Simulated scan of single mutants.
Amino acid sequence: MIITITIVNWLLRLIDAYSIVLVIYALMSWIPSLYGTWFGRFIIKISRPYLSLFENLPLSFAGLDFSILVAVIVLQFIQRFIMIVVNGILF
């Protein structure tokens, strides 16, 4: 049981970390020269596969793209769902 809790905690931390990566990706759009750096290429490489799931949704309004916001919200829902399931099973 302790191992399960540890694995779930790590999974929840990874989701938090990935959410931060997505926010960094969004902030990089304000300074486009960051995309060419090694850090920018790394952020793009790990964030684009997940963000590509939201590309075909009509999430652009008034010239702003809200796909990253929706992607982070979906991650938060997944995180909450995992917590509810684990609490229901273990406790």
Rank of each mutant, 00 (worst) to 15 (best):
I3H: 09
A26Q: 13
M28Q: 10
F77V: 15
P32H: 02
I73H: 00
V74K: 01
L64A: 12
I31K: 12
P32L: 00
F91A: 11
V86E: 05
R80P: 01
V72G: 08
I7M: 12
P32C: 01
Y35I: 04
M28W: 07
S33T: 11
N56I: 04
I15E: 02
F39V: 15
S47F: 04
L51F: 11
A17W: 07
P58A: 00
Y50D: 02
S67A: 10
I46F: 04
M83I: 14
I89P: 01
L69N: 13
P49N: 03
Y25T: 06
V85D: 03
F61L: 15
I73E: 00
L51I: 07
P58R: 00
S52L: 07
L12C: 01
A26Y: 08
I5Q: 03
Q79Y: 04
Y25A: 10
Q79F: 02
A71P: 14
F77K: 08
V23Y: 12
I89V: 14
F39G: 15
Q76Y: 05
Y25C: 04
E55W: 10
I20S: 13
T6L: 15
V72D: 09
N9S: 14
F66L: 14
G36D: 10
L12T: 08
G40N: 03
N87T: 12
D16W: 08
W30P: 05
I43G: 07
G63Q: 06
I3R: 10
W38G: 05
L34Q: 02
I2M: 10
F42L: 14
D16K: 07
I7F: 09
F81C: 12
V23H: 06
I46W: 01
V74M: 11
A62P: 01
F81N: 12
F77C: 13
E55Q: 14
P58Y: 00
L22P: 08
M1Y: 10
I68Q: 11
P49A: 02
L57E: 02
W10N: 09
I20E: 11
L59R: 00
L14G: 12
T6N: 11
L69F: 09
N9V: 03
A71H: 07
S52K: 13
A26N: 08
L34A: 02
N56H: 14
N56S: 10
I15K: 06
L22E: 01
L57G: 00
P49S: 03
L22I: 09
P32Q: 03
T37L: 03
L12I: 06
R80M: 15
F61S: 05
F66V: 06
G63F: 04
V8P: 07
G63W: 03
G63I: 03
I44L: 11
F39M: 13
S19P: 00
R48H: 12
F39T: 15
R13D: 12
D65T: 06
I68D: 02
A71M: 06
F42D: 08
W30A: 15
L53K: 04
I68R: 13
G63H: 05
